[in-house]
């Protein structure tokens, strides 16, 4: 009984929803700051993302003519809920060390594969959100978004298979926390695995940028062509929800990369620590790794210009997919040796 209450409190507070909210806003600030410094600008003040959200909730909301108010309201809520569900699956930290590894709050057996489903529904919700507004810009943007998500989902799937294959044993549970704990051990046992892991990490960074519609892959929301694409009709608190959902999505996908490729909250063997100290250490390690991944992604954004939708789909199928396949096949080969 006591553990249940503790778990609910933790789920609401620190490794839970409030932590994700704060981290989402922090990721927003970090992303904009690194992007601005890469462009020789100053960047926003620290609390700017919070100001943005508060300001947006105070704005008037306009429902366009002929748009179903039900879906117009429900879809942004579903969007943010999907992102929160995904973010809660990431193993961050846990107070008692009775379990053999850290698990996320909504985690269950074989959840590595459920994560892929969540990612796809994240992309599909973007499509529906653009589609229902009946704006030509939004529909064009939504179609592009769907095309891009479907193209990049397949390389992402192959990239995620690489650490799963490395860790997986006969009686494995395929839980994210297990993979994050055992990925370094697997590399220690067979150093050749590092090749496939590094390639898959690079692929997943690119795919993450495409999933989040960040700069080189932002043709669905291209500001100068489509006037922010599928977002064009949203305003007020719905837009604030979508903004938050995007940032939670960034937390989710970045956390997924940290978990699968960088060992999540582990850095060597920290399980023997005092529970309270261990809780804090795991949290800090996870946050530092997440900051590194997000900063790397933000810096990559400054380097090249926007890729047209046909170019990005061609990139996904002709370049990224073969690379991901090579990583997968290398890992299978080293596993069999």
């Amino acid at each position: 009984m006591e553990t249940l209450w503790l778990e609910i409190i933790l789920m609401i507070t620190v490794p839970g929803i409030i932590f994700i909210l704060v981290m989402g806003l922090f990721i927003d600030w970090l992303d904009r700051k690194v992007y601005a410094r890469g462009q020789n600008r100053r960047g926003p003040p620290f609390l700017q993302p919070l100001y943005d959200i508060v300001k947006l909730t105070a704005k008037e909301t306009i429902v366009p003519k002929g748009v179903s108010k039900f879906w117009y309201t429900v879809l942004p809520i579903m969007f943010i809920l999907t992102a929160i569900t995904g973010a809660l699956m990431i193993p961050i930290s846990i107070l008692d060390n009775t379990d053999s590894f850290i698990i996320g709050f909504t985690s269950f057996k074989f959840d590595v594969f459920f994560v892929l489903f969540l990612l796809l529904s994240y992309g599909l919700l973007i499509y529906f959100m653009g589609y229902i507004t009946k704006n030509p810009y939004a529909q064009t943007g939504a179609t592009r978004s769907l095309l891009q998500v479907l193209s990049f989902e397949i390389p992402l799937g192959f990239a995620i298979l690489v650490p799963i294959l490395m860790v997986g044993k006969d009686r494995s549970d395929f839980i994210l926390g297990e993979i994050s704990k055992k990925v370094y051990t697997a590399v220690g046992e067979n150093p050749w695995f590092i090749i496939g892991l590094v390639i898959a990490f690079c692929v997943s960074i690119v795919v993450m940028m495409a999933e989040l519609e960040e700069f080189p892959f932002d043709s669905p929301i291209a500001h100068t062509e489509l006037a922010d694409g599928w977002l064009v009709e949203y305003g007020g608190w719905r837009y604030a929800l979508i903004r938050l959902g995007e940032r939670f999505g960034a937390f989710f996908i970045g956390g997924l990369i940290v978990t699968l490729f960088l060992g999540g909250p582990y850095l060597g063997n920290t399980l023997g620590l005092n529970p309270y100290l261990g809780f804090f250490v795991h949290l800090v390690i996870f946050v530092v790794k997440l900051i590194l991944v997000v900063a790397l992604m933000s810096f990559l954004r400054t380097l090249i210009s926007r890729i047209r939708i046909d170019q990005s789909v061609r990139l996904a199928w002709k370049t990224i997919l073969p690379i991901a396949l090579v990583a997968l096949m290398l890992t299978i080969g080293f596993k069999l040796i």
Binding site: Q39, N40, F215, D218, L303, I304, S305, R306
Partner: peptide, 16 residues
């Protein structure tokens, strides 16, 4: 033009 192609870095550098 760089901003239109989505290359905001070049846009900021040239304007600097």
């Amino acid at each position: 033009l760089a901003h239109d192609t989505g290359f905001d870095t070049l846009f900021h550098v040239t304007w600097r």
